[in-house]
Design a protein around this nucleic acid. Structure first.
Lengths: 192, 192
DNA sequence: TCGATTGTCTAGCGGTGCTAGGATCGAGGT
DNA sequence: ACCTCGATCCTAGCACCGCTAGACAATCGA
């Protein structure tokens, strides 16, 4: 059965190749440039092989989004763990979130702007997405304040970060004062 | 010169027709359904006439966005003016903003999610967009708090609203608790 | 060694945004 | 009243998109 195992492994590797290539291409030239033809050319296969791994382009975006969600969750946890004090952890968390969005705009788009066919806030929400929310919740629960549900507080805090991330990147907010906005946001929302 | 005037008027009317039809179609079936062919068919002209009014689809989206921005600014001013007290005005403002986004999802997308080719936070930012920001600023300056630049506070507040609006509509946040989130956000951000 | 299965490709479908070039029509001058 | 000519609009088509059917080659089990 070693042959089948090898084939299965090669197949899995190719699937990884597709996802990472899609991500690279998206980061390089934006998601508009990620066409099935270009993607196929980059991985040096024909278009139809993409459809033997994924149902369509949407699912490829979803795979990139999932990969990104896992990374984001890990970075958030790392940033929070490295900081001191409740307030310090929250600030580090917010910085890490915005930093991730800025360093991986295409991945961030795949997660939150584009339709990757992923379910949110539902039963069949993929584990990686729940992990991301959980990573936020763990740190934010300490600063939610009296009588405020940690989950709800996390939603609001997350939404604010998301708004800052998207508006900044779209040029809707002046790029320079990002740090000042974070300070203001954390200072007001977090109850120390 | 009456003939030329009539033609000019008819041309302006047709341009209005294009924009309102694009908006209708987008609200009905989403922006993906707004193709130049469908749009042309609805206004009962051929495709190329669209390009005699707009440089391309992007500019049509931009025109819808501009129209929406003017409406949003007016609604925000109205809501704020109808409420009592600094805190009450801010809450009314936030509700009005989120309400607009929910009632006009396609227009909101045109303004903030899609590329309408509009400049933000720059010199050549269209008047309607500045008006929208100004409408927020007028009410929010009263609750920015000591030593906080009203403009920066408005940016943060706006970003939070934007995050709530987009995440809620994309199903990323549970739909039911919108009001509770607004209360929490306003209660924390606004300094009364 | 041979049939079956698996894997991959070529070619093509209907759709997209956008444009070139020809037909039509009406205003203005003679 | 007619004719010219410019503005206006449409037909047809380009290159590209996501996606798929069907032909073909390679590999496996008997």
């Amino acid at each position: 059965m070693s042959v089948q195992e090898r084939k299965q492994r090669e197949r899995a590797e190719r699937e990884r190749l597709i996802v990472t290539t899609a991500r690279e291409l998206a980061e390089e030239q934006g998601w508009d440039a990620v066409t099935t033809r270009r993607l196929a050319e980059r991985i040096e296969y024909s278009q139809p092989v993409l459809y033997s791994h994924f149902r369509g382009k949407r699912e490829i975006i979803g795979a990139v989004a999932l990969e990104g969600a896992a990374e984001l969750a890990a970075e958030l946890r790392g940033a929070s763990a490295a900081a001191e004090g409740a307030r310090g952890r929250v600030t580090a968390l917010a910085r890490a979130y915005l930093d991730f969005a800025e360093r991986n705009p295409a991945v961030y788009d795949a997660m939150f702007q584009l339709d990757g066919g992923l379910a949110f806030a539902a039963e069949d929400t993929p584990e990686a997405l729940k992990e991301g929310f959980a990573a936020l919740l763990e740190t934010l629960r300490d600063v939610a304040g009296e009588g405020v549900e940690p989950g709800r507080f996390t939603e609001v805090f997350w939404a604010s970060l998301h708004g800052l991330a998207t508006l900044t990147r779209a040029g809707r907010l002046p790029a320079g004062d990002a740090e000042a906005r974070v300070e203001l946001l954390v200072g007001r929302l977090a109850v120390v």
